[in-house]
Design a protein around this nucleic acid. Structure first.
Length: 510
RNA sequence: GCGCCCGUAGCUCAGCGGAAGAGCGACGGCCUUCUAAGCCGUGGGUCGCAGGUUCGAAUCCUGCCGGGCGCGCCA
Protein backbone atom coordinates (compact mmCIF):
# COMPACT_ATOMS: atom_id res chain seq x y z
CA UNK A 1 0.00 0.00 0.00
CA UNK A 2 1.26 3.44 -0.84
CA UNK A 3 0.78 6.82 0.76
CA UNK A 4 -2.74 8.00 1.53
CA UNK A 5 -4.44 9.90 -1.23
CA UNK A 6 -5.31 13.46 -0.44
CA UNK A 7 -8.32 14.85 -2.24
CA UNK A 8 -8.67 18.49 -1.42
CA UNK A 9 -11.56 19.48 0.81
CA UNK A 10 -14.59 20.82 -0.98
CA UNK A 11 -15.92 24.31 -0.33
CA UNK A 12 -18.90 22.75 1.43
CA UNK A 13 -16.57 20.78 3.71
CA UNK A 14 -14.57 23.93 4.39
CA UNK A 15 -17.69 25.82 5.32
CA UNK A 16 -18.79 23.00 7.62
CA UNK A 17 -15.32 22.87 9.17
CA UNK A 18 -15.25 26.63 9.76
CA UNK A 19 -18.62 26.50 11.44
CA UNK A 20 -17.52 23.45 13.40
CA UNK A 21 -14.40 25.23 14.65
CA UNK A 22 -16.43 28.23 15.69
CA UNK A 23 -18.98 26.08 17.47
CA UNK A 24 -16.54 23.61 18.97
CA UNK A 25 -18.35 20.60 17.56
CA UNK A 26 -18.51 18.56 14.37
CA UNK A 27 -20.94 20.10 11.91
CA UNK A 28 -22.49 18.45 8.89
CA UNK A 29 -24.14 20.52 6.21
CA UNK A 30 -26.95 19.12 4.10
CA UNK A 31 -28.90 20.45 1.18
CA UNK A 32 -32.47 20.94 2.34
CA UNK A 33 -35.24 19.50 0.20
CA UNK A 34 -37.12 22.75 0.35
CA UNK A 35 -35.51 25.84 -1.21
CA UNK A 36 -37.20 27.92 1.49
CA UNK A 37 -34.77 26.31 3.95
CA UNK A 38 -31.74 27.96 2.41
CA UNK A 39 -28.72 26.73 0.49
CA UNK A 40 -27.46 24.49 3.26
CA UNK A 41 -28.76 23.43 6.64
CA UNK A 42 -27.50 21.67 9.71
CA UNK A 43 -29.22 19.75 12.47
CA UNK A 44 -26.20 20.10 14.74
CA UNK A 45 -28.13 21.97 17.41
CA UNK A 46 -30.62 19.09 17.67
CA UNK A 47 -27.79 16.60 18.06
CA UNK A 48 -25.90 18.72 20.57
CA UNK A 49 -28.88 19.62 22.75
CA UNK A 50 -28.85 16.43 24.89
CA UNK A 51 -25.05 16.54 25.28
CA UNK A 52 -24.88 20.18 26.28
CA UNK A 53 -28.15 20.07 28.20
CA UNK A 54 -29.32 23.16 26.44
CA UNK A 55 -32.57 23.66 24.55
CA UNK A 56 -31.95 23.00 20.85
CA UNK A 57 -33.33 26.31 19.68
CA UNK A 58 -31.02 28.16 22.04
CA UNK A 59 -28.03 26.30 20.59
CA UNK A 60 -29.35 26.94 17.12
CA UNK A 61 -29.50 30.68 17.80
CA UNK A 62 -25.87 30.62 18.82
CA UNK A 63 -24.90 28.55 15.75
CA UNK A 64 -26.79 30.92 13.49
CA UNK A 65 -24.95 33.87 15.01
CA UNK A 66 -21.58 32.15 14.40
CA UNK A 67 -22.54 31.09 10.90
CA UNK A 68 -23.64 34.57 9.87
CA UNK A 69 -20.17 35.86 10.71
CA UNK A 70 -18.44 33.38 8.35
CA UNK A 71 -17.17 34.53 4.95
CA UNK A 72 -19.53 33.58 2.17
CA UNK A 73 -22.56 33.32 4.42
CA UNK A 74 -25.19 35.90 3.62
CA UNK A 75 -27.57 35.04 6.41
CA UNK A 76 -28.43 32.25 8.83
CA UNK A 77 -31.79 31.47 10.37
CA UNK A 78 -33.15 29.12 12.98
CA UNK A 79 -36.06 27.02 11.83
CA UNK A 80 -38.35 24.33 13.19
CA UNK A 81 -37.20 22.50 16.32
CA UNK A 82 -33.59 23.72 15.91
CA UNK A 83 -32.37 23.53 12.36
CA UNK A 84 -30.01 26.24 11.20
CA UNK A 85 -30.51 27.28 7.60
CA UNK A 86 -27.77 29.07 5.67
CA UNK A 87 -28.00 31.34 2.66
CA UNK A 88 -24.74 31.87 0.79
CA UNK A 89 -23.58 34.83 -1.26
CA UNK A 90 -22.57 34.85 -4.93
CA UNK A 91 -18.87 34.92 -4.04
CA UNK A 92 -19.16 31.49 -2.43
CA UNK A 93 -20.72 30.03 -5.59
CA UNK A 94 -18.02 31.55 -7.77
CA UNK A 95 -15.30 30.20 -5.52
CA UNK A 96 -16.92 26.76 -5.52
CA UNK A 97 -17.24 26.64 -9.28
CA UNK A 98 -13.62 27.77 -9.58
CA UNK A 99 -12.50 24.94 -7.31
CA UNK A 100 -14.46 22.41 -9.36
CA UNK A 101 -12.89 23.63 -12.60
CA UNK A 102 -9.41 23.54 -11.08
CA UNK A 103 -9.82 19.83 -10.38
CA UNK A 104 -10.57 19.18 -14.05
CA UNK A 105 -11.77 15.69 -14.88
CA UNK A 106 -10.38 14.40 -11.56
CA UNK A 107 -13.10 16.28 -9.69
CA UNK A 108 -14.59 13.88 -7.14
CA UNK A 109 -11.85 11.29 -7.55
CA UNK A 110 -9.02 10.03 -5.36
CA UNK A 111 -11.31 9.65 -2.36
CA UNK A 112 -9.68 6.43 -1.13
CA UNK A 113 -7.95 6.81 2.22
CA UNK A 114 -5.37 4.25 1.06
CA UNK A 115 -4.55 2.98 -2.38
CA UNK A 116 -5.17 -0.76 -2.62
CA UNK A 117 -4.62 -3.43 -5.20
CA UNK A 118 -8.09 -4.80 -5.74
CA UNK A 119 -9.31 -7.72 -7.77
CA UNK A 120 -12.95 -7.78 -8.80
CA UNK A 121 -14.01 -11.21 -9.91
CA UNK A 122 -17.29 -11.07 -11.75
CA UNK A 123 -19.68 -12.76 -14.15
CA UNK A 124 -17.73 -16.06 -14.02
CA UNK A 125 -20.64 -17.87 -15.64
CA UNK A 126 -20.06 -21.41 -16.78
CA UNK A 127 -19.26 -21.37 -20.50
CA UNK A 128 -22.17 -23.67 -21.29
CA UNK A 129 -24.05 -21.06 -23.28
CA UNK A 130 -24.28 -17.38 -24.17
CA UNK A 131 -24.25 -14.74 -21.43
CA UNK A 132 -27.78 -14.01 -20.31
CA UNK A 133 -29.37 -10.77 -19.21
CA UNK A 134 -29.40 -12.17 -15.69
CA UNK A 135 -25.63 -12.72 -15.76
CA UNK A 136 -25.20 -9.31 -17.33
CA UNK A 137 -26.36 -7.69 -14.10
CA UNK A 138 -23.36 -9.25 -12.44
CA UNK A 139 -21.14 -7.61 -15.05
CA UNK A 140 -22.91 -4.26 -15.04
CA UNK A 141 -22.78 -4.08 -11.25
CA UNK A 142 -19.30 -5.51 -10.83
CA UNK A 143 -17.78 -3.38 -13.55
CA UNK A 144 -19.31 -0.20 -12.12
CA UNK A 145 -17.95 -1.06 -8.68
CA UNK A 146 -14.57 -1.61 -10.33
CA UNK A 147 -14.81 1.76 -12.10
CA UNK A 148 -15.73 3.48 -8.83
CA UNK A 149 -12.75 1.89 -7.11
CA UNK A 150 -10.43 2.99 -9.91
CA UNK A 151 -11.79 6.52 -9.76
CA UNK A 152 -11.25 6.51 -6.01
CA UNK A 153 -7.58 5.80 -6.67
CA UNK A 154 -7.30 2.03 -6.38
CA UNK A 155 -5.46 -0.29 -8.70
CA UNK A 156 -8.13 -2.65 -9.99
CA UNK A 157 -8.06 -5.84 -12.02
CA UNK A 158 -11.13 -7.57 -13.38
CA UNK A 159 -11.13 -11.31 -13.65
CA UNK A 160 -13.42 -14.01 -15.01
CA UNK A 161 -13.23 -17.42 -13.40
CA UNK A 162 -14.69 -20.29 -15.28
CA UNK A 163 -15.43 -23.86 -14.70
CA UNK A 164 -13.95 -26.01 -17.43
CA UNK A 165 -13.85 -29.18 -15.40
CA UNK A 166 -17.11 -29.84 -13.60
CA UNK A 167 -20.32 -31.78 -14.05
CA UNK A 168 -22.06 -29.01 -15.95
CA UNK A 169 -19.25 -28.87 -18.48
CA UNK A 170 -19.46 -32.60 -19.06
CA UNK A 171 -23.16 -32.27 -19.75
CA UNK A 172 -22.47 -29.40 -22.08
CA UNK A 173 -19.86 -31.28 -24.07
CA UNK A 174 -22.08 -34.38 -24.12
CA UNK A 175 -24.92 -32.27 -25.53
CA UNK A 176 -22.76 -30.95 -28.37
CA UNK A 177 -21.42 -34.43 -29.07
CA UNK A 178 -24.94 -35.84 -29.19
CA UNK A 179 -25.96 -33.27 -31.78
CA UNK A 180 -22.89 -34.15 -33.81
CA UNK A 181 -24.03 -37.78 -33.82
CA UNK A 182 -27.42 -36.62 -34.97
CA UNK A 183 -29.03 -37.41 -31.62
CA UNK A 184 -31.05 -35.40 -29.17
CA UNK A 185 -29.04 -33.91 -26.27
CA UNK A 186 -29.35 -35.87 -23.02
CA UNK A 187 -32.30 -35.22 -20.74
CA UNK A 188 -30.17 -33.09 -18.41
CA UNK A 189 -28.15 -31.57 -21.27
CA UNK A 190 -28.22 -28.25 -23.08
CA UNK A 191 -30.25 -27.36 -26.14
CA UNK A 192 -30.84 -24.37 -28.29
CA UNK A 193 -29.58 -23.02 -31.57
CA UNK A 194 -26.16 -22.22 -30.15
CA UNK A 195 -25.59 -25.90 -29.32
CA UNK A 196 -26.27 -26.83 -32.93
CA UNK A 197 -23.91 -24.11 -34.13
CA UNK A 198 -21.12 -25.29 -31.85
CA UNK A 199 -21.71 -28.85 -33.09
CA UNK A 200 -21.22 -27.73 -36.68
CA UNK A 201 -18.07 -25.79 -35.81
CA UNK A 202 -16.22 -28.86 -34.56
CA UNK A 203 -13.57 -29.12 -31.87
CA UNK A 204 -13.95 -28.51 -28.14
CA UNK A 205 -17.02 -26.30 -27.73
CA UNK A 206 -15.77 -24.79 -24.48
CA UNK A 207 -13.06 -22.46 -25.89
CA UNK A 208 -15.44 -21.45 -28.67
CA UNK A 209 -18.18 -20.63 -26.18
CA UNK A 210 -15.73 -18.71 -24.04
CA UNK A 211 -14.54 -16.64 -26.98
CA UNK A 212 -18.15 -15.76 -27.73
CA UNK A 213 -18.75 -14.76 -24.11
CA UNK A 214 -15.69 -12.52 -24.12
CA UNK A 215 -16.84 -10.85 -27.33
CA UNK A 216 -20.29 -10.23 -25.86
CA UNK A 217 -18.84 -8.72 -22.69
CA UNK A 218 -16.42 -6.53 -24.63
CA UNK A 219 -19.39 -5.27 -26.60
CA UNK A 220 -21.01 -4.59 -23.22
CA UNK A 221 -17.88 -2.55 -22.40
CA UNK A 222 -16.57 -4.94 -19.80
CA UNK A 223 -12.96 -5.83 -20.26
CA UNK A 224 -11.32 -8.61 -18.29
CA UNK A 225 -7.67 -8.41 -17.37
CA UNK A 226 -7.49 -12.07 -16.55
CA UNK A 227 -9.22 -15.42 -16.96
CA UNK A 228 -8.86 -18.14 -14.36
CA UNK A 229 -9.49 -21.81 -15.12
CA UNK A 230 -10.84 -24.22 -12.57
CA UNK A 231 -8.87 -27.13 -14.04
CA UNK A 232 -5.56 -25.33 -13.54
CA UNK A 233 -6.37 -24.31 -10.00
CA UNK A 234 -7.40 -27.84 -9.11
CA UNK A 235 -3.87 -29.07 -9.76
CA UNK A 236 -2.74 -27.24 -6.68
CA UNK A 237 -5.22 -28.96 -4.40
CA UNK A 238 -2.87 -31.73 -3.22
CA UNK A 239 -0.63 -29.13 -1.57
CA UNK A 240 -3.43 -26.86 -0.40
CA UNK A 241 -6.06 -29.15 1.06
CA UNK A 242 -3.77 -30.39 3.84
CA UNK A 243 -3.60 -26.78 5.04
CA UNK A 244 -7.35 -26.79 5.64
CA UNK A 245 -9.16 -27.99 8.71
CA UNK A 246 -10.87 -31.08 7.29
CA UNK A 247 -12.45 -34.35 8.35
CA UNK A 248 -13.87 -37.47 6.71
CA UNK A 249 -17.55 -38.32 6.81
CA UNK A 250 -19.62 -40.66 4.65
CA UNK A 251 -16.60 -41.23 2.47
CA UNK A 252 -16.19 -37.55 1.60
CA UNK A 253 -13.67 -34.98 2.79
CA UNK A 254 -15.25 -31.97 4.49
CA UNK A 255 -13.85 -28.55 5.30
CA UNK A 256 -14.73 -27.59 8.87
CA UNK A 257 -15.77 -24.13 7.62
CA UNK A 258 -18.50 -23.76 10.26
CA UNK A 259 -15.71 -23.25 12.80
CA UNK A 260 -14.39 -20.32 10.75
CA UNK A 261 -17.47 -18.21 10.22
CA UNK A 262 -19.42 -20.17 7.61
CA UNK A 263 -22.94 -21.44 8.28
CA UNK A 264 -22.00 -24.99 7.53
CA UNK A 265 -19.21 -27.38 6.62
CA UNK A 266 -18.57 -27.98 2.93
CA UNK A 267 -17.56 -31.06 0.99
CA UNK A 268 -14.25 -30.50 -0.76
CA UNK A 269 -13.60 -34.07 -1.99
CA UNK A 270 -16.58 -36.14 -3.04
CA UNK A 271 -16.96 -39.69 -1.83
CA UNK A 272 -16.15 -40.75 -5.39
CA UNK A 273 -12.81 -38.98 -5.07
CA UNK A 274 -13.27 -35.91 -7.25
CA UNK A 275 -12.81 -32.41 -5.87
CA UNK A 276 -15.84 -30.14 -5.67
CA UNK A 277 -16.21 -26.60 -6.97
CA UNK A 278 -15.73 -25.50 -3.36
CA UNK A 279 -12.30 -27.12 -3.36
CA UNK A 280 -11.36 -25.05 -6.38
CA UNK A 281 -12.53 -21.99 -4.44
CA UNK A 282 -9.81 -22.70 -1.92
CA UNK A 283 -7.11 -22.87 -4.57
CA UNK A 284 -8.45 -19.77 -6.26
CA UNK A 285 -8.61 -17.66 -3.11
CA UNK A 286 -5.10 -18.72 -2.12
CA UNK A 287 -3.98 -17.78 -5.61
CA UNK A 288 -5.65 -14.36 -5.46
CA UNK A 289 -4.05 -13.43 -2.16
CA UNK A 290 -0.68 -14.83 -3.20
CA UNK A 291 -0.79 -12.63 -6.28
CA UNK A 292 -0.67 -9.65 -3.96
CA UNK A 293 -4.19 -8.30 -4.07
CA UNK A 294 -4.97 -6.40 -0.90
CA UNK A 295 -8.62 -7.10 -1.51
CA UNK A 296 -10.45 -9.83 -3.39
CA UNK A 297 -14.01 -8.91 -4.29
CA UNK A 298 -16.52 -11.57 -5.31
CA UNK A 299 -19.65 -10.47 -7.14
CA UNK A 300 -22.35 -13.08 -6.57
CA UNK A 301 -26.03 -13.40 -7.42
CA UNK A 302 -28.49 -13.84 -4.56
CA UNK A 303 -28.87 -17.50 -5.49
CA UNK A 304 -25.35 -17.91 -4.09
CA UNK A 305 -25.98 -16.03 -0.88
CA UNK A 306 -25.72 -19.27 1.07
CA UNK A 307 -21.99 -19.26 0.40
CA UNK A 308 -21.34 -15.60 1.23
CA UNK A 309 -19.48 -16.53 4.40
CA UNK A 310 -17.60 -19.43 2.85
CA UNK A 311 -14.90 -17.30 1.27
CA UNK A 312 -14.01 -15.51 4.49
CA UNK A 313 -13.93 -18.89 6.23
CA UNK A 314 -11.49 -20.18 3.62
CA UNK A 315 -9.26 -17.17 4.23
CA UNK A 316 -9.26 -17.92 7.97
CA UNK A 317 -8.51 -21.60 7.39
CA UNK A 318 -5.57 -20.55 5.22
CA UNK A 319 -4.37 -18.25 7.97
CA UNK A 320 -5.17 -15.12 5.99
CA UNK A 321 -7.00 -11.97 7.05
CA UNK A 322 -10.68 -12.44 6.14
CA UNK A 323 -11.04 -8.67 5.80
CA UNK A 324 -9.20 -9.00 2.50
CA UNK A 325 -12.18 -10.93 1.14
CA UNK A 326 -15.35 -9.13 0.23
CA UNK A 327 -18.53 -10.68 -1.16
CA UNK A 328 -20.97 -8.43 -2.99
CA UNK A 329 -24.44 -9.86 -3.46
CA UNK A 330 -27.02 -8.63 -5.88
CA UNK A 331 -30.61 -9.79 -6.23
CA UNK A 332 -31.67 -11.63 -9.32
CA UNK A 333 -33.10 -10.43 -12.58
CA UNK A 334 -36.55 -11.77 -13.33
CA UNK A 335 -37.66 -11.82 -16.90
CA UNK A 336 -41.25 -11.64 -17.95
CA UNK A 337 -43.02 -11.75 -21.26
CA UNK A 338 -46.17 -9.71 -21.61
CA UNK A 339 -46.38 -9.35 -17.85
CA UNK A 340 -46.20 -13.09 -17.24
CA UNK A 341 -43.26 -14.46 -15.31
CA UNK A 342 -41.38 -17.09 -17.24
CA UNK A 343 -38.79 -19.30 -15.70
CA UNK A 344 -36.03 -19.22 -18.23
CA UNK A 345 -33.59 -22.06 -18.32
CA UNK A 346 -30.19 -22.00 -19.93
CA UNK A 347 -30.47 -25.73 -20.45
CA UNK A 348 -33.73 -25.39 -22.35
CA UNK A 349 -32.19 -22.65 -24.45
CA UNK A 350 -35.11 -20.25 -23.99
CA UNK A 351 -33.20 -17.56 -22.16
CA UNK A 352 -32.85 -14.01 -23.32
CA UNK A 353 -29.21 -13.50 -24.13
CA UNK A 354 -27.33 -10.31 -23.45
CA UNK A 355 -26.63 -9.98 -27.15
CA UNK A 356 -30.34 -10.12 -27.97
CA UNK A 357 -31.11 -7.62 -25.23
CA UNK A 358 -28.38 -5.25 -26.43
CA UNK A 359 -29.55 -5.63 -30.04
CA UNK A 360 -32.96 -4.52 -28.85
CA UNK A 361 -32.16 -1.65 -26.51
CA UNK A 362 -28.51 -0.74 -27.07
CA UNK A 363 -25.54 -0.95 -24.73
CA UNK A 364 -26.15 2.40 -23.07
CA UNK A 365 -29.75 1.74 -22.07
CA UNK A 366 -28.96 -1.83 -21.05
CA UNK A 367 -26.09 -0.89 -18.77
CA UNK A 368 -27.94 2.08 -17.33
CA UNK A 369 -30.97 -0.04 -16.61
CA UNK A 370 -29.08 -2.91 -14.99
CA UNK A 371 -27.04 -0.66 -12.72
CA UNK A 372 -29.78 1.81 -11.80
CA UNK A 373 -31.38 -0.42 -9.19
CA UNK A 374 -29.90 -1.06 -5.80
CA UNK A 375 -28.12 -4.40 -5.59
CA UNK A 376 -30.62 -5.49 -2.93
CA UNK A 377 -33.50 -4.93 -5.29
CA UNK A 378 -34.79 -7.64 -7.59
CA UNK A 379 -34.97 -6.39 -11.17
CA UNK A 380 -37.95 -7.26 -13.30
CA UNK A 381 -37.65 -6.89 -17.04
CA UNK A 382 -40.56 -7.41 -19.35
CA UNK A 383 -38.71 -8.52 -22.44
CA UNK A 384 -41.59 -7.58 -24.70
CA UNK A 385 -41.74 -4.05 -23.32
CA UNK A 386 -38.00 -3.54 -22.93
CA UNK A 387 -37.43 -1.78 -26.21
CA UNK A 388 -40.47 0.43 -25.83
CA UNK A 389 -39.55 1.32 -22.27
CA UNK A 390 -35.98 2.15 -23.13
CA UNK A 391 -37.13 4.79 -25.59
CA UNK A 392 -37.99 6.62 -22.38
CA UNK A 393 -34.88 5.53 -20.57
CA UNK A 394 -33.52 8.43 -18.52
CA UNK A 395 -30.06 7.65 -19.89
CA UNK A 396 -30.99 9.65 -22.98
CA UNK A 397 -32.08 12.57 -20.84
CA UNK A 398 -28.64 12.64 -19.24
CA UNK A 399 -26.79 12.09 -22.50
CA UNK A 400 -28.83 14.86 -24.08
CA UNK A 401 -27.68 17.32 -21.44
CA UNK A 402 -24.10 16.32 -22.22
CA UNK A 403 -24.61 16.74 -25.96
CA UNK A 404 -26.28 20.12 -25.48
CA UNK A 405 -23.32 21.37 -23.51
CA UNK A 406 -20.94 19.96 -26.10
CA UNK A 407 -22.81 21.98 -28.71
CA UNK A 408 -22.49 25.18 -26.72
CA UNK A 409 -18.79 24.65 -26.10
CA UNK A 410 -18.26 23.91 -29.80
CA UNK A 411 -19.92 27.17 -30.71
CA UNK A 412 -18.01 29.04 -28.03
CA UNK A 413 -14.69 28.35 -29.68
CA UNK A 414 -11.85 30.04 -27.80
CA UNK A 415 -14.09 32.36 -25.80
CA UNK A 416 -13.07 33.18 -22.26
CA UNK A 417 -14.14 30.78 -19.49
CA UNK A 418 -14.19 32.12 -15.96
CA UNK A 419 -15.77 31.24 -12.65
CA UNK A 420 -15.77 34.94 -11.83
CA UNK A 421 -19.22 36.36 -12.38
CA UNK A 422 -19.95 39.90 -13.45
CA UNK A 423 -23.66 39.53 -12.91
CA UNK A 424 -25.92 38.66 -10.01
CA UNK A 425 -26.34 34.89 -10.00
CA UNK A 426 -29.71 33.46 -10.95
CA UNK A 427 -31.37 30.71 -8.90
CA UNK A 428 -30.78 28.16 -11.69
CA UNK A 429 -27.06 28.95 -11.68
CA UNK A 430 -26.79 28.63 -7.93
CA UNK A 431 -28.72 25.35 -7.90
CA UNK A 432 -26.46 23.88 -10.56
CA UNK A 433 -23.28 24.84 -8.69
CA UNK A 434 -24.64 23.29 -5.50
CA UNK A 435 -25.55 20.14 -7.41
CA UNK A 436 -22.04 19.81 -8.83
CA UNK A 437 -20.58 20.37 -5.38
CA UNK A 438 -22.50 17.29 -4.21
CA UNK A 439 -20.53 15.03 -6.51
CA UNK A 440 -17.39 14.29 -4.44
CA UNK A 441 -19.19 13.13 -1.28
CA UNK A 442 -21.78 11.29 -3.36
CA UNK A 443 -19.29 9.34 -5.43
CA UNK A 444 -17.19 8.62 -2.35
CA UNK A 445 -20.21 7.16 -0.59
CA UNK A 446 -21.22 5.18 -3.67
CA UNK A 447 -17.73 3.68 -3.70
CA UNK A 448 -17.66 3.00 0.02
CA UNK A 449 -21.06 1.33 -0.03
CA UNK A 450 -20.42 -0.46 -3.33
CA UNK A 451 -23.61 1.21 -4.49
CA UNK A 452 -23.14 2.42 -8.07
CA UNK A 453 -26.90 2.86 -8.50
CA UNK A 454 -26.72 6.25 -6.81
CA UNK A 455 -24.64 7.57 -9.71
CA UNK A 456 -27.41 7.39 -12.35
CA UNK A 457 -29.88 8.98 -9.94
CA UNK A 458 -27.48 11.81 -9.26
CA UNK A 459 -26.74 12.22 -12.97
CA UNK A 460 -30.46 12.66 -13.63
CA UNK A 461 -30.53 15.45 -11.06
CA UNK A 462 -27.53 17.15 -12.65
CA UNK A 463 -29.15 16.90 -16.07
CA UNK A 464 -32.38 18.20 -14.60
CA UNK A 465 -30.66 21.24 -13.12
CA UNK A 466 -28.77 21.84 -16.32
CA UNK A 467 -31.80 21.58 -18.63
CA UNK A 468 -33.61 24.06 -16.39
CA UNK A 469 -30.65 26.43 -16.44
CA UNK A 470 -30.36 26.07 -20.21
CA UNK A 471 -34.01 26.81 -20.68
CA UNK A 472 -33.91 29.95 -18.55
CA UNK A 473 -30.57 31.44 -19.55
CA UNK A 474 -28.71 32.02 -22.73
CA UNK A 475 -25.00 31.20 -22.52
CA UNK A 476 -23.37 32.53 -25.68
CA UNK A 477 -23.51 36.26 -26.25
CA UNK A 478 -25.03 36.84 -22.85
CA UNK A 479 -23.63 39.33 -20.37
CA UNK A 480 -22.60 36.34 -18.25
CA UNK A 481 -20.99 34.30 -21.01
CA UNK A 482 -17.63 33.55 -19.36
CA UNK A 483 -19.23 32.41 -16.10
CA UNK A 484 -21.87 30.33 -17.85
CA UNK A 485 -19.28 28.68 -20.06
CA UNK A 486 -17.44 27.76 -16.88
CA UNK A 487 -20.65 26.33 -15.46
CA UNK A 488 -21.23 24.38 -18.69
CA UNK A 489 -17.75 22.94 -18.71
CA UNK A 490 -17.93 21.83 -15.07
CA UNK A 491 -21.36 20.30 -15.64
CA UNK A 492 -20.20 18.47 -18.72
CA UNK A 493 -17.27 16.94 -16.87
CA UNK A 494 -19.42 15.74 -14.02
CA UNK A 495 -21.99 14.21 -16.37
CA UNK A 496 -19.27 12.57 -18.45
CA UNK A 497 -17.73 11.13 -15.29
CA UNK A 498 -21.07 9.78 -14.08
CA UNK A 499 -21.75 8.16 -17.43
CA UNK A 500 -18.29 6.63 -17.53
CA UNK A 501 -18.71 5.21 -14.03
CA UNK A 502 -21.69 3.20 -15.22
CA UNK A 503 -20.15 2.27 -18.57
CA UNK A 504 -22.27 4.58 -20.69
CA UNK A 505 -21.00 6.81 -23.49
CA UNK A 506 -21.11 10.59 -23.29
CA UNK A 507 -22.09 11.73 -26.81
CA UNK A 508 -20.91 15.02 -28.31
CA UNK A 509 -24.01 15.16 -30.48
CA UNK A 510 -27.44 13.55 -30.45
C1' G B 1 -38.60 -25.13 9.91
C1' C B 2 -34.08 -21.91 9.38
C1' G B 3 -31.18 -17.98 6.70
C1' C B 4 -30.67 -13.63 3.21
C1' C B 5 -33.32 -9.78 0.26
C1' C B 6 -37.72 -6.87 -0.85
C1' G B 7 -42.80 -4.50 0.33
C1' U B 8 -42.77 4.01 -0.60
C1' A B 9 -47.50 7.62 -6.16
C1' G B 10 -51.34 3.66 -11.36
C1' C B 11 -46.22 1.15 -13.01
C1' U B 12 -40.64 0.80 -12.24
C1' C B 13 -37.84 2.45 -8.30
C1' A B 14 -34.55 6.31 -5.17
C1' G B 15 -34.31 7.97 -0.14
C1' C B 16 -32.46 4.13 5.02
C1' G B 17 -32.40 8.89 12.04
C1' G B 18 -33.94 15.11 10.83
C1' A B 19 -38.64 19.44 7.13
C1' A B 20 -42.01 12.61 1.79
C1' G B 21 -38.93 12.17 -4.01
C1' A B 22 -37.61 10.76 -9.46
C1' G B 23 -38.65 8.39 -14.16
C1' C B 24 -42.63 6.38 -16.93
C1' G B 25 -48.04 6.70 -17.45
C1' A B 26 -52.49 10.62 -17.13
C1' C B 27 -54.18 15.79 -17.91
C1' G B 28 -53.01 21.05 -19.53
C1' G B 29 -49.53 24.78 -21.43
C1' C B 30 -44.45 26.43 -24.08
C1' C B 31 -40.37 26.17 -30.25
C1' U B 32 -38.48 32.98 -35.67
C1' U B 33 -33.27 32.73 -29.92
C1' C B 34 -26.74 28.09 -28.02
C1' U B 35 -30.14 20.67 -30.03
C1' A B 36 -38.34 20.53 -27.97
C1' A B 37 -34.38 13.42 -26.87
C1' G B 38 -36.14 20.00 -23.72
C1' C B 39 -39.06 23.41 -20.21
C1' C B 40 -43.45 24.76 -17.03
C1' G B 41 -47.97 23.40 -14.54
C1' U B 42 -52.05 19.85 -12.54
C1' G B 43 -53.49 15.37 -10.39
C1' G B 44 -51.76 11.20 -7.51
C1' G B 45 -48.93 8.15 -1.29
C1' U B 46 -52.46 6.00 6.26
C1' C B 47 -43.89 5.01 3.10
C1' G B 48 -47.32 -3.63 4.05
C1' C B 49 -49.64 -4.06 9.37
C1' A B 50 -48.90 -3.64 14.80
C1' G B 51 -45.90 -2.45 18.79
C1' G B 52 -41.12 -0.33 20.70
C1' U B 53 -36.60 3.11 20.97
C1' U B 54 -36.00 8.64 20.10
C1' C B 55 -36.93 15.62 20.94
C1' G B 56 -37.78 13.44 15.92
C1' A B 57 -38.87 6.91 12.42
C1' A B 58 -40.15 5.50 5.39
C1' U B 59 -35.26 5.07 7.81
C1' C B 60 -33.29 1.62 14.00
C1' C B 61 -35.46 -2.85 17.12
C1' U B 62 -39.38 -6.82 17.82
C1' G B 63 -43.56 -9.48 16.02
C1' C B 64 -46.95 -10.48 12.10
C1' C B 65 -48.63 -10.54 6.80
C1' G B 66 -47.19 -10.77 1.55
C1' G B 67 -43.36 -11.73 -2.43
C1' G B 68 -38.29 -13.42 -4.19
C1' C B 69 -33.91 -16.48 -3.33
C1' G B 70 -31.39 -20.27 -0.71
C1' C B 71 -30.64 -24.34 3.03
C1' G B 72 -23.66 -30.71 3.21
C1' C B 73 -20.72 -34.46 -1.97
C1' C B 74 -24.81 -28.84 -8.82
C1' A B 75 -22.37 -24.27 -9.55
Amino acid sequence: MSAPLRPRPSPVDLLAAQLGDAAGAAIELERPNDAAHGDYATNAALRLAPVRRTPPRELAQELARLAAALPGVERAEVAGPGFVNLWLGDAWFEETLGAILDDGSDFGGASAPQRERVQVEMVSANPTGPITVAAARNGAYGDSVARLLEFAGHDVEREYYYNDAGTQMERFRASVDAVRRGEEPPEDGYRGDYVAELARAGGDPVPAMLAQIEATLERFRIHFDGWALQSELERRLPELLPRLDTYEREGATWARSSAYGDEQDRVVIRSKGRPTYRAADVAYLEDKLARGFDRAIYVLGADHHGTRNWYGAVARMLGQDPARVEVLLYQLVHLTRGGEVTKMSKRRGDVVTLDEFVDEVGVDAARWYLVSRGADQTIEIDVDLAAEKTQKNPVYYVQYAHARIAGILRNAGEAEVSAHATHSLAPEERELVKRLAEFPPLVAEATERRAPHSIPYYAIQVADDFHRFYHEHRVLESDAQAFRLALCRATQRVIARCLDLVGVEAPERM
